[in-house]
């Protein structure tokens, strides 16, 4: 695209679960793959996530949720992004997402669903190939 473009990724932990090991490992792996990674820390509300997306203007957002709150949190985040007319950002969710919830989340525009044990290079590849801009 241009001389100095870097892929910018936001790694977020919405909800209350504090298990940030996976999110941090992913953040490091994406950095090691040459991306610029913003890590927001734990306990992000949907509004926090959307505000950060607006200001940081990332190419991709990775939500990491292990508490089972994905069906409530993810659609709300997607709706709020839509309200702000943000449609060129890849939004992926990982963590513990049961298979049967995937169609519901896909319908809301979410991708990814990498769970524990996913190889890091697979996640890097996923981000690279699914960018929307």
């Amino acid at each position: 695209m241009s001389e100095n473009r870097r892929i910018k990724v936001l790694v977020c932990k919405p909800g209350l679960d504090g298990h940030d090991r996976g999110a941090k490992v992913i953040a490091r792996a994406l950095r090691d793959a040459g991306m610029e990674v913003i890590y927001t820390g734990i306990h992000q509300t949907p509004d926090d996530v959307v505000n950060t997306v607006i200001q940081e203007d990332p190419d991709a957002v990775i939500l990491s949720i292990l508490s089972g709150a994905h069906n409530a949190l993810c659609p709300m985040i997607m709706e709020k992004l839509k309200e702000k007319d943000i449609d060129d950002v890849l939004v992926a969710v990982g963590g513990i997402i049961p298979d049967e919830d995937k169609p519901f989340l896909e319908k809301h525009g979410l991708k990814g669903f990498q769970g524990p044990g996913t190889e890091l290079k697979e996640i890097v590849e996923f981000v690279k190939t699914n960018l929307k801009r």
Binding site: G15, L16, D17, S67, A69, A72, M76
Partner: peptide
């Protein structure tokens, strides 16, 4: 903050 977390 409890959104989606209750009883999970």
């Amino acid at each position: 903050y409890a959104l989606g977390e209750v009883g999970k």
